[in-house]
């Protein structure tokens, strides 16, 4: 029997720089009852030293995919008759599907026809028997960084099988990231609002700045900006040694900080609607940080064009300013959470 089904998805969870989170948040944020959960997570960034001396430090969300256990059940999807009927059945049962393709073989992809392999995931959320196609969200399709596209049943069957035939060894480290194919069942939950305990203890963890004997810096939370300020200061002293091949990565890391800052501002708006104690002053600091990051982004691009070391000094100063703002916002936020919690007793 010909049929069609489409599960709800959020088309722009605004964490495109963290692809594994982006796909799962597309599922989570489609359910308004889970928005409080989203605002209870992703409080901290962490900074890891670059793998090579001339590289750029890695900045990522402190929390990893295990946090979704509370709200999403992820399970291996095993082929029954063929992959199309397996995926179709999963969607019919209200299960999303994350699977991996080599995008050089996918027509809707920016990488279609390229010489190099690019194995990455997609989120299938619908099927249409009339069109003989699945609906999916993916990166770099239809001219968008992240957006919706379709893949025919025939192409999906062939391309998933291609990945299984050729990539099982090369991509094995993505096994816990949904490789090669998983079903995702959203757990039922009532809207319990944001988890203030989670936010508080994330802030409590988010004040780490350490350096090992080799001079490698590790930071979690607001000191990430300080660590970057120091990084650019030392880069300036060395006369600028960041490899040109690292520039794209550098820009992604700055953009990730912009996305994280936007998430923090959305969180404060959300909490501010619950209790005005979270508004105004704390928000003012994150707004300041937002402006600082916009200038950092533009100065970074300027440096990458001109290689003027003075710009490295300027970027260092901007990160120092952001650190100062976040250093003030951090205890204010903790205190607001404490006051909000203790109100129950007064």
């Amino acid at each position: 029997m010909r049929n069609k089904k489409r599960l709800p998805v959020h088309h722009n969870p605004a964490f495109s720089t963290e692809c594994y989170h982006q796909y799962r948040l597309s599922i989570v944020m489609a359910d308004p009852r889970k928005i409080g959960w989203v605002h209870s997570h992703f409080i901290n960034l962490k900074l890891l030293p670059p793998p090579v001396t001339e590289g750029f430090p890695m900045i990522r969300l402190e929390e990893h995919l295990d946090i979704y256990k509370e709200i999403l059940e992820e399970f291996p999807l095993v082929k029954s008759v063929d992959w199309v009927s397996t995926i179709r059945k999963a969607i019919s049962n209200q299960h999303y599907v994350v699977l991996y393709f080599n995008w050089r073989y996918i027509q809707a992809s920016k990488y279609y026809g390229h010489a190099a392999d690019l194995v990455h995931e997609a989120l299938i959320y619908g099927f249409d028997d009339e069109q003989q196609a699945f609906e999916m969200l993916a990166f770099d399709v239809e001219g968008k960084v992240y957006g919706a596209t379709k893949i025919s049943y025939q192409d999906c069957e062939r391309e998933l099988q291609r990945v299984l035939d050729t990539e099982m060894n090369a991509q094995r480290w993505f096994a816990f990231y949904g490789f090669p194919i998983v079903g995702i069942r959203p757990r039922d939950m009532k809207d319990s609002g944001p988890d203030m305990h989670s936010i508080y203890f994330a802030l409590d963890r988010g004040a780490v700045h350490s350096r090992d004997k080799a001079g490698n810096t590790f930071a979690v939370g607001f000191p990430v900006s300080l660590a970057l300020s120091e990084y650019f200061e030392s880069e300036c002293e060395r006369g600028g040694t960041i490899l040109e091949s690292e520039f794209a990565f550098w820009n992604v890391m700055v953009y990730k900080m912009i996305q994280h800052n936007a998430a923090m501002n959305r969180r404060l708006d959300f909490l501010g609607n619950m209790d005005p104690i979270f508004a105004e002053r704390i928000k003012g600091f994150y707004e300041k940080t937002k402006k600082g990051l916009a200038v950092i982004r533009s100065s970074s691009l300027q440096y990458q064009r001109s290689r003027d070391p003075a710009l490295l000094q300027e970027i260092s100063g901007l990160f120092a300013k952001n650190y100062e703002a976040e250093r003030r916002a951090h205890p204010l936020m903790k205190e607001a959470l404490v006051f909000h919690h203790l109100k129950k007793y007064s």
Binding site: A320, R327, H330, P331
Partner: peptide, 24 residues
């Protein structure tokens, strides 16, 4: 160590100044 940062914020707002990191 927590609430003196809050004091810094109070002082900055009240006096319209920005206290430098090295003084905090």
């Amino acid at each position: 160590s927590m609430n003196y940062i809050r004091l810094v914020v109070e002082l900055e707002d009240s006096f319209g100044i920005e206290i430098q990191d090295q003084d905090i």
